[in-house]
């Protein structure tokens, strides 16, 4: 049953790499890199959750193509083979949210560099923590 869980565990490894960067690295850019890696790992996890092993060949996207016609029977056929559309919709939303967060982080990093003249978090520490 290794193949049933291995992809998910690999996602978690990616997540931990991101977490490691956030908790250990003392450079602003590295922290931002860590946050983006975490975003990517979560998106990867969600995409893999919706995956369906197809009967043959490569995965079938949840798109009704012209070849299939618009027959109800074909949609049932599609349903029994295609991947789940809901996680994909969720990931589309979460990718865009992630971009918004990254934009804010970048702006903050630039402002902090203006104020302190460095990306070193040990020097950016006016607050007591």
């Amino acid at each position: 049953m290794l193949h049933a869980v291995l992809p998910f565990v690999l996602c978690l490894v990616l997540f931990i790499i991101g977490l490691y960067a956030i908790s250990v690295k003392k450079n602003l850019i590295k922290v931002i890199v860590g946050v983006i890696i975490i975003h990517n790992s979560v998106n990867l996890f969600l995409v893999l959750i919706g995956y369906r092993v197809p009967a043959t060949g490569s995965a079938i996207a949840p798109i009704i193509t012209p070849q299939m016609g618009r027959d109800a029977m074909d949609v049932r056929e599609l349903l029994s083979h295609s991947v789940d559309p809901v996680p994909q919709a969720l990931v589309l939303t979460s990718i865009v949210i992630g971009l918004a967060v990254v934009a804010l982080m970048v702006v903050m990093a630039l402002r902090l560099h203006q104020k302190y003249g460095t990306f070193d978090l040990t020097e950016i520490s006016k607050l007591k923590g």
Binding site: V101, M105, A109, L112
Partner: peptide, 10 residues
């Protein structure tokens, strides 16, 4: 304020 905000964001 920027520093606190960054920490909070992360």
């Amino acid at each position: 304020e920027l520093e606190a905000s960054f920490k909070y964001l992360v």
